[in-house]
Design a protein around this nucleic acid. Sequence first.
DNA 1: ACCAATTTGTCCGTATGTATG
DNA 2: TCATACATACGGACAAATTGG
Lengths: 254, 254
Amino acid sequence: MTETGEKFDRINAIPAYQLVADAIEREILARRIRPGEPIGTEAQLVKQFGVNRSTVREGIRLLEQSGLIHRDSGRRLTASLPHYSRLATRMSRAMLLHEVTFRELWEATTALEIATVEQAAEHATADVIAELQANVASTEQASADPAAVAELDTQFHSLIAKASQNRVLQLAREPSSLLIFPTTEIILRKLKEGVPRLIQAHRKIVDAVSRHDKEASRLWMLRHANDWRRGFERAGKDVDQPIDRVYMKEVMTR
Amino acid sequence: MTETGEKFDRINAIPAYQLVADAIEREILARRIRPGEPIGTEAQLVKQFGVNRSTVREGIRLLEQSGLIHRDSGRRLTASLPHYSRLATRMSRAMLLHEVTFRELWEATTALEIATVEQAAEHATADVIAELQANVASTEQASADPAAVAELDTQFHSLIAKASQNRVLQLAREPSSLLIFPTTEIILRKLKEGVPRLIQAHRKIVDAVSRHDKEASRLWMLRHANDWRRGFERAGKDVDQPIDRVYMKEVMTR
DNA sequence: ACCAATTTGTCCGTATGTATG
DNA sequence: TCATACATACGGACAAATTGG
């Protein structure tokens, strides 16, 4: 394979479409093109890069997927901030393909939710607290409908993340939460006592957060997480099995 | 714009290249194409989808970027597991573009590293512990060279994540660690006492993990994190400023 | 180690639908 | 309303690289 007296490195010809994508990406990351600004039309890019139209288009597809560019009202290509949800969805899919277990998900999610609620207790504003209270009220109203409660539970934890005012935590918690919260519905459907316990935990958490009580926030989030895992086990699921893809339809569809 | 007596919904024509990408993605996510299996040649896809080759190629670019498909040694397209590092890099870039602050990064990273080291204390095997000990020994050897120490520090925390045997934590911690660990070098360069303190913390953490002592692991990781933040402040940086893109070159280059 | 078939990378030209001014 | 610009999609072509005898 490799000759003894090699003098030259292997030439790795990078495809032109990749170079096009790299060039545009560099401009955006270096902030020479700001989010919201137009990239230019395909014809302009063809002229600037000196490659064919098809090549430019392939390059654009690469960036489109990563969320760095975005076609505005159908037409113009503009630079954009990659949105969290998009990235989170990809991460979730990767986790599914890697067949992670519920235990792994639970451990990570618990740690992240606790860290998040502690920050929420520190930084929550009146606005967000009002939203949280509204959420808890809605959950009480919907307590007979497991699907609605599960949906509101997901929203509750997103609001806590919003209250934390920490975008890194928001970003880090989203992929696992996307995977784990759908199981809430299954748990609630099987366990009668699930809904009242969930509502109590949520109410206590909102109380603690609104009092800026970090310790109580942490404690109730921990209890909430433990309930959740116990619910999973009592629903007859094995925490060491890969999470069931059957229940994850919502993650698979874009 | 909208007429009063509308009978039909707006037709949103999804581009053909997008449909091609979606179709292939569905097959992979549904496990009808397993990771490692070939997708087929472009010509075959042209025949199956009944679209032009350029269209197929654009669709392929979308999947290529998301990591679901991969060009093997030659040119063949095969399905693949999206690798963590690839996704983590994208997340890191998103954080940079969103101009997150060091404080946000520090809070999230601290929470994640502590959760990770606790799991490591529970699940670490002899193999990984040996790797950790080797890492600490190397760090002691290299203690005069801040760049080398920073590099080994990053590796140390990756090994802790490996020891945790929790892939979700591994995935969740990587984006923020990619951003925060490069600052280590800057801190170490400015603060003489940084290196010995880092080495001591690492040694204590390895000790605690190898004794499966969760409490001690947590404690020393927390101290390590606090050192780090104090170092950042003493190096004259403001924790509430967006992280400096100047120091993040390594994240920007693929 | 050579050769033929296949496959990818790139290019050209063209047609069509549609958003914008 | 209409003209223009632009993105989408198609068909065909050729050179270089890879594959599999």
